[in-house]
Design a protein around this nucleic acid. Structure first.
Lengths: 227, 227
DNA sequence: GTATGATTGAAACGTTTGTATGAATCGAAC
DNA sequence: GTTCGATTCATACAAACGTTTCAATCATAC
């Protein structure tokens, strides 16, 4: 067999593939990213993808799982801590929203060397309720929803579940947008805006979301009075 | 030449391609949609795509242009009317936000027979500042931004342009999310929520956005007092 | 009827794709 | 050193892809 073998260190092939896939899926989307692009960037052999991950789709699931699972775990931790440190076990709306949003912004900041990729991956995945990522994403979203929705509802002081559900959806929209907004602002204005810190961005988006949720709560109350 | 020719009516090939492309690009994304899928759904010949649109990318640009251009034109019209009918030529924040959001929701409703497609197309496009759609989208976004941003700023009563820019980005996030929220709510809760009318959805999202923007304005004022 | 440009049709082309295959190499245990 | 499973390598395969080509057909004007 004609083989020009240059051995690759064998201890991190899988991670190299995951890293490259995360970057390229985020930048180009799943379908437009070929396995050869991934393996070229990761400097591994094409067959390694199927060996370690069985299929391209399974690779996507793995990328999503390792990206989003820590965020959701962090959310749960923050909320648990909040409830412990709140005298009545009932966090305020501002605190609850922070616990929801902060992990996503933290993840953005933690990916300093590939900061341009994570926000787009998240934006792409969040736009696809029935897409390829659904089997991985829906259970995760379900768990977070089950945990946070009652807290939001209590903090908003509303009776209707639909008010909370819509508020949560708009909050997700804000949060997702927040992750890519710097790129958009740059593209639209052509200005090099001074870089905002993560805490500044967090303050802005939490302020907006809390204001919006409180407005929805007020709306519900005034509709009840009118009915 | 061996040809089994069945003539197609020649008066609407281009529109059939655009319709099919809009549906499939929205549902699957650009890269995952092949021209053969489009032409099969449109019941036209493969070569027609390149004849009428020159390339797949040009087809995408055409789809985006015909989808988003009417929305933006409607936005401008609504705002013009608003300024005419406002005594001082200065619309309130609620009205300005409505003028921004309503056309998108209207477009969703107008696509009754393909309602599942338009929201996703919009969500996909909005997630990609530097993507394939950028040459078409950025000028359109620029025009809308130039027109609405001063109105929002005045209505919010803030001095800093950055406050308005961020508020606008969060608003776009809310609006985009609003278009696909019914699917998400359905997927997460497994419940068949009663269908909300367009006006109900519009009221909800405008309420949230206005609340959020007012909160940002208050935040700016309190930061100025503190500084 | 003829001429001409527009439009459609079938097929070809070269490239790319994900998956699969079997051999070579590696690393750990004995 | 030998064995065995894990891992990597080069290659093959069939299918799919966007673009192109050229002839047939259509529609309109004269």
């Amino acid at each position: 067999m004609n083989r020009t073998f240059e051995p690759t260190p064998r201890h991190d092939t899988k991670d190299k593939i995951l890293d490259a896939a995360e970057r390229l899926f985020a930048d180009q989307g799943f379908a437009a990213t070929s396995l050869r692009q991934i393996t070229t960037e990761a400097n591994v052999n094409l067959a390694a993808v199927n060996y370690h991950f069985k299929s391209k789709e399974a690779l996507l699931s793995a990328v999503i799982g390792r990206t989003f699972e820590p965020i959701n775990r962090r959310r749960m931790e923050l909320l648990d801590q909040l409830e412990l440190s709140s005298g009545s076990g009932r966090p305020g709306l501002d605190e609850a929203v922070r616990a929801f949003v902060r992990p996503a912004l933290e993840a953005r900041s933690a990916n300093a060397k590939s900061m341009r990729y994570f926000p787009r991956l998240m934006a792409r995945i969040m736009a696809e309720p029935g897409g390829l990522a659904a089997p991985v994403m829906l259970p995760a979203l379900q768990a977070v929803t089950d945990r946070f929705m009652p807290v939001f509802q209590q903090a908003m002081g509303v009776n209707k579940r639909s008010t909370v559900l819509w508020g949560a959806q708009f909050s997700i929209g804000c949060m997702a947008r927040c992750l890519i907004a710097p790129e958009f602002i740059q593209a639209i204005t052509g200005e090099n805006q001074p870089q905002e810190s993560m805490e500044q961005m967090l303050d802005r988006v939490v302020c907006f979301i809390v204001g919006g949720m409180q407005a929805l709560a007020e709306r519900e109350k005034s509709l009840c009075i009118g009915a």
